[in-house]
């Protein structure tokens, strides 16, 4: 049986170099095998030790679980220590990653835009110049755009009382506060 597929790790800021190599060895030993550091490991180190985030915050940034992040982080510490002690070069490459930048959602023109300059914070919406925008995470929001379920209405078939539907609570479990009847779901498109 093949192992479970690894979840793609999000890398916000890839390294600007391809690797590091030791210098000034006392005895020149024949070329040592480099240590491969994956992009996700570099990113874990950057988030945790450079940006000083805790494992939970960093795992959210990389869109993996906290335990997975901790494993990646432990692995990069081990690798870097190994490279230092054994004076081996490090190569940063490979890994199960995708590159993405921060995305924002503008409340004025309803557009989504990203921040191409990693070091400069976004101050206005790229399209309409409004300052009314929020951080937006594209992951796990596949159905975000056409998810109208949240706007459904619970209706009482007896007295016609309408109530905003709450996700996760079946309408058939809601009791009409006026006539104690069981309520029914009314979908938005039917409602129109």
């Amino acid at each position: 049986m093949s192992p479970r597929l690894k979840r793609l790790r999000k890398v916000l800021s890839p390294p600007t170099v391809k690797g590091f190599k030791p210098f000034g060895q006392d005895v020149v030993i024949d070329k040592k095998e480099p240590i491969i550091i994956y992009y996700e490991e570099y990113e874990a180190l950057r988030l945790c030790d450079y940006d000083k985030l805790n494992h939970h915050q960093a795992s959210v940034f990389m869109s993996v679980s906290r335990p997975t992040f901790t494993r990646v982080y432990a692995s990069v510490r081990q690798k870097i220590a190994m490279a230092f002690v054994e004076s081996r070069p490090m190569l940063i490459e490979g890994g199960k990653v995708y590159f993405d930048s921060d995305w924002y959602h503008c409340n004025t023109c309803h557009c989504y835009f990203n921040n191409p300059e990693k070091n400069v914070a976004i101050t206005v919406c790229g399209l309409c110049g409004s300052q009314d925008f929020i951080n937006f995470d594209f992951d796990n929001t596949e159905n975000y755009f056409d998810d109208d379920r949240a706007n459904d209405i619970c209706i009482c078939p007896n007295c016609g009382l309408k109530k905003q539907h709450q996700l996760g609570i079946p309408c058939s479990e809601e009791i009409c506060p006026v006539c104690q009847n069981v309520m029914k779901r009314k979908r938005k498109n039917e409602y129109k």
Binding site: H110, N115, L127
Partner: peptide, 20 residues
């Protein structure tokens, strides 16, 4: 698309998605 986003990212071109 998934292929395009990283290219624009590295070219430092801002992407704006308008679902209208």
């Amino acid at each position: 698309g998934m292929k395009i986003k990283p290219i624009f990212d590295s070219l430092k071109i801002q992407m704006i998605i308008l679902k209208e």
